[in-house]
Structures are given as structure tokens and as C-alpha cells.
Design a protein around this nucleic acid. Structure first.
Length: 343
DNA sequence: CGACTTTGACCGGCGC
DNA sequence: GCGCCGGTCAAAGTCG
């Protein structure tokens, strides 16, 4: 995916920097039309000198901005590469663990598994690795296989659980996470560890879709809504193409035009969407890139986010416009110089 | 009138 | 076995 293709290049180029183009042309016309008086020629030469000086200054500025732009592009491709690396790693892991069936046993252990995910994901991984070695202390092969099967089921379940944190206005009491899918609320409960009620949703787009979602406000930060997804959608995303897949369990996030920061959890990492910020700072973008991106879709989402952030930043637009106009100016400057020499 | 939300009741797992 | 707790069901209510 080309970075440039993501940028909204529909910039208004009729801005200040381009005024120099007209300014540069104006004296030339004067020169063409009024070469009679010598005193006037002196004025024209003075003006030209000032203009050339101005052009040089703008060119230098343009050079700086071009360098800055190059830097941004470089860091973008660097981040993209890191993301690709991470994504491919996750895909390999997902393939290793692929088994679409979640057994009733696994479902019955949901709470146990979930708590272990929440409390200590790393410990779980160690446990899984140990089990996957296939060496059990138990002498009974049946027991051994059932233990392994149980561990595998747990692992599969965990692989299908992802958590998304959405930052909303604290005053917003609705537990709605717009992720592009259709959800039907089937329950709400106040849990012991959190006074904020937890809402239970089922995917209602396809009647056979097994995906469930739990949404609850964070205890630490009430402005953060935590959505936990379980299962995989067995249908395509009903939302528009501007959505971004966010996790291994194919959760899609409709970000629309809202810039936000992100990090992810898929049995560990968490997606955080900051929907409160209209103009995310560079720090947001950086923190997003620092996060652990373990889902293939987040790549597209991040790219969109970066593009959106850049195109919405008036400073960036102005800089880009200046850079582009600078190129014109340089070209024009060269032409003018040639024409002057010809005079 | 159908789709969706709300909310109290119920169920099953887990710890003591 | 009992109570607690999270998750689910389903009837009633609401909305477009």
C-alpha cells in the first residue's frame, strides 16, 4: 500500500505560498511592458533582487519541510514493516492453533480461562508451552490426552478472545462500541469487581454467528469502555469498507472520520480507541505504534489513522502545500533567471 | 408491528 | 451442601 495513495491530496493550493508565483510573474510583465525609463529599470532590478531573496528563503524552508516529510515517510514505512512482521507472526500462531470448534467443556471453563487471561497472560503461555511439549507427569494416557485436550481448548478459546478499549467522554453513559457489526443486547449485570454495569451483546447480523461481546466501563478510568469479544464472525463485515479489522477474531472497528489512538489485546494486548480527541497529537500516533499489534486488521486501521491524522492537520497541509508550491517556485525561479539572462 | 432494549429470574460453576 | 457470582433467558417495555 502506497503511503501517498492514502493521503488526501486534494489540497487547496490557492494559498499564500502560491501567491509568490503571481508576485514572481508580475514584475516580469512590467519589465516586458516598461523598459523605456532607466530609473524604472533600477526599481525593477531592486524588486527582482528582493524577490529572488524571498524565493531563496522560501526554497530553504521548502527544503526543510521536504526533509521533514521524508522523515515522516521513513518512520511510517519503518512502523509499517514492524507491523507486518508482527502480523505475520500472529498469523503463524493462529494457524498453529486453528480449530473452529469450541467445545462445551471450553465454554464451561470460560470464567476460569478468562480470569487467567486477565490476571496473567504470560503465565498462561508458559503453561501452554509446557503442555504442548506433550510430556505429562501422569501415567495414565487417557488422563494425559484429556489434559492436553483441555489445555488446547483453553488455548483456542483464548485465541478467539480479544479486548478492545474505547475511550469515550466520561459523561457518555451508553455502553455502545461502534465496531461495524450489528449487536443485540441480551443482558446487563453489575459485577462485583466493578460498580459499572456490564452489558452482554450477541452478533445479530447473522443468526448463526456465535460472536459475543461484553462491554463495561473501566474501573480505573471511567472514560474507557472495555469491550471483550468472544468467538469468530462466520460472515462478512456488514459495515462500509472504511472499517478496519482489529483482531484475530475478525472484529471490525468503524472509525469513520474520528481520529483516535490504538493498542490491542487478543488474549493479552488491548485495542484502545481514543474517541475523545479531535486532533490526536504525535504522541498518540507514537504510542499506537509502540503498542503490540497482534491483529492483521490493525495494520489497515493504523494506516488509515495516520493518513487521516496527517490530512486533518492544518499545519501538515500548509507545510505540504508550501513544499509543493516551493517546487513550483524553484522551477519558476529557474525559468525567470533564464529569462533575465536572455534580456 | 417488528426489532431492539431492559431487567428480574434462573442456571451452572466455583470456592468454602 | 450452600451461597456467591457471572452469564443467559425471556417477558415486558420502548421505539421508529
Amino acid at each position: 500500500m502506497e503511503f501517498t495513495s492514502l493521503l488526501n491530496t486534494s489540497l487547496d493550493l490557492n494559498t499564500e505560498p502560491l501567491r509568490f508565483l503571481d508576485d514572481a510573474r508580475q514584475p516580469k510583465q512590467e519589465v516586458d511592458g516598461n523598459l523605456i525609463g532607466l530609473g524604472r529599470n533600477v526599481t525593477v532590478i531592486e524588486e527582482r533582487g528582493a524577490l529572488i531573496e524571498e524565493l531563496n528563503r522560501v526554497s530553504a524552508e521548502n527544503k526543510k519541510l521536504t526533509e521533514l516529510l521524508t522523515e515522516v515517510c521513513e518512520s511510517y514505512s519503518e512502523l509499517r514493516n514492524q507491523l507486518m512482521e508482527h502480523t505475520s507472526k500472529i498469523n503463524v500462531e493462529a494457524l498453529d492453533n486453528s480449530n473452529p470448534n469450541i467445545s462445551k467443556t471450553a465454554a464451561s471453563r470460560k470464567r476460569k480461562a478468562e480470569s487467567s487471561i486477565n490476571n496473567n497472560a504470560n503465565k498462561d503461555n508458559i503453561g501452554i508451552n509446557n503442555n504442548s511439549n506433550g510430556h505429562s507427569e501422569s501415567s495414565s494416557s487417557d488422563e494425559d490426552s484429556s489434559k492436553k485436550a483441555a489445555a488446547r481448548e483453553e488455548e483456542q478459546l483464548k485465541a478467539k478472545i480479544s479486548r478492545v478499549c474505547v475511550r469515550t467522554e466520561a459523561s457518555d453513559t451508553s455502553l455502545i462500541v461502534k465496531d461495524g457489526y450489528q449487536w443485540r443486547k441480551y443482558g446487563q449485570k453489575v459485577t462485583r469487581d466493578n460498580p459499572c454495569p456490564r452489558a452482554y451483546f450477541k452478533c445479530s447480523f447473522a443468526p448463526t454467528c456465535p460472536v459475543k461481546k461484553k462491554v463495561q466501563r473501566s474501573l480505573e478510568d471511567q472514560s474507557i469502555v472495555v469491550a471483550t469479544y468472544e468467538g469468530e464472525h462466520n460472515h462478512t463485515n456488514p459495515s462500509k469498507p472504511e472499517t478496519a479489522t482489529t483482531s484475530g477474531s475478525n472484529q471490525n472497528l468503524t472509525l469513520g472520520n474520528v481520529p483516535c489512538s490504538a493498542s490491542i489485546i487478543s488474549s493479552g494486548p488491548t485495542i484502545t480507541l481514543d474517541l475523545t480527541r479531535q486532533k490526536p497529537s504525535q504522541e498518540n500516533t507514537r504510542s499506537a505504534s509502540r503498542g503490540r499489534f497482534e491483529a492483521p486488521g490493525i495494520q489497515h486501521y493504523l494506516v488509515e489513522q495516520m493518513a487521516s491524522t496527517l490530512t486533518k492537520d492544518p499545519n501538515f497541509k500548509a507545510a505540504l502545500a508550501a513544499a509543493i508550491s516551493g517546487k513550483f517556485l524553484q522551477h519558476n525561479n529557474n525559468n525567470n533567471n533564464n529569462q533575465t539572462e536572455n534580456l
